[in-house]
């Protein structure tokens, strides 16, 4: 024991005198993992987008070509799918922002300490509960003889046939990513000192004006941080379109997945995947400039 303690003491003393050694020991493993695996993988993806697949042998040809991109740009089908994906991601982000803001506001300003804790737990819990379970639940709810139509019939209303449509996708995406929006908005609102509200009131601003001129600008980083999640997660999803979308609800992810798995055309899939990649790159850069990372 004494020997081991002595050795570890000497080792820790060495690290103490040589902080660079300690830093290397701490930072190198994650840096190497991320660079050698993840960044390298992204680089391969980016490069592969400029390769092609030999039509006869099905082998990947490693010569530079922009054929994948010209093919994508020329195809109205792929343009429609890309626009559908991006449009849905934007719509879901907006829906979640509207749903989340009053909840976050209530948590930050109205709820007492105990209730606030309960609400935080309740909001975060679905976030960690099975993604597939929650999508599947909506598949059952929205189905022809599901709970929604049962409820509508009980109220004497006509049945809603929205299972397997874009409406279903909109509901399910908004549902699944909602906690990702509530939490950062709450974090941003919670940081606003109560004196700001009083000051605004003292200066004669009514509720609506305070909301617009004081609360919203200060909540913005939270909304942007939340939107990173809702936008990116919707953009990169292909499970929900498969499970609750109908015919004609393909996302970028569906095309990518079928080109990797079934058609075995990785270069084409990679080229298509650069669309959300570039989009998210720009989005993250912009969000960083707007200070969204401070509230994450």
């Amino acid at each position: 024991m004494i020997g081991a303690g002595g050795r570890s003491n000497r080792l820790s003393a060495l690290f103490w005198r040589q902080p660079m050694l300690a830093l290397a020991g701490l930072a190198l493993p994650p840096v190497l993992w991320l660079v050698l695996i993840y960044i390298a993988a992204l680089a391969v993806l980016f490069v592969a987008a400029f390769w092609s697949v030999d039509d006869f042998t099905g082998e990947i040809v490693r010569t530079w070509t922009v054929r994948n991109f010209t093919e994508l740009a020329a195809s109205p089908t792929y343009r429609t799918i890309a626009l559908r994906t991006i449009g849905m991601a934007a719509l879901v982000t907006l829906t979640d922002a509207v749903l989340a803001f009053p909840v976050a506001y209530y948590m930050a300003r109205v709820a007492g300490r105990r209730l606030r804790l309960v609400l935080i737990t309740l909001v975060v819990l679905p976030l960690w509960s099975s993604y597939l379970a929650r999508v599947y639940a909506w598949r059952l709810i929205l189905a022809h003889d599901g709970a929604l139509n049962w409820g509508l019939r009980a109220l004497g209303l006509p049945a809603a046939e929205i299972g397997y449509t874009n409406w279903a996708m909109w509901i399910v995406f908004s549902y699944i990513w909602l906690p990702f929006m509530i939490m950062p908005v709450y974090a941003a609102l919670e940081r606003i000192p109560p004196s700001f509200f009083e000051a605004s009131q003292d200066l004669g601003a009514r509720g609506g004006r305070t909301l617009r001129r004081v609360v919203l600008p200060l909540a913005m980083p939270g909304l942007i941080a939340g939107s990173i999640f809702t936008f990116s997660l919707t953009l990169g999803d292909y499970i929900t379109p498969v499970l609750v979308g109908g015919p004609g609800s393909d996302f970028i992810g569906n095309v990518v997945y079928s080109n990797v798995g079934v058609a075995n055309n990785i270069p084409f899939a990679a080229a298509y995947a650069t669309v959300p990649l570039v989009l998210m790159g720009l989005y993250l850069w912009l969000a960083r400039r707007l200070g969204a990372f401070e509230v994450l």
């Binding site: 695996i37 993840y38 993988a41 993806l45 990116s232 999803d237 990518v256 997945y257 995947a273 990649l277």
Partner: peptide
């Protein structure tokens, strides 16, 4: 932070 298909496809 990047969409899931990107990470999956890249790997």
């Amino acid at each position: 932070a990047l969409p899931g298909i990107i990470t999956g496809m890249a790997l």
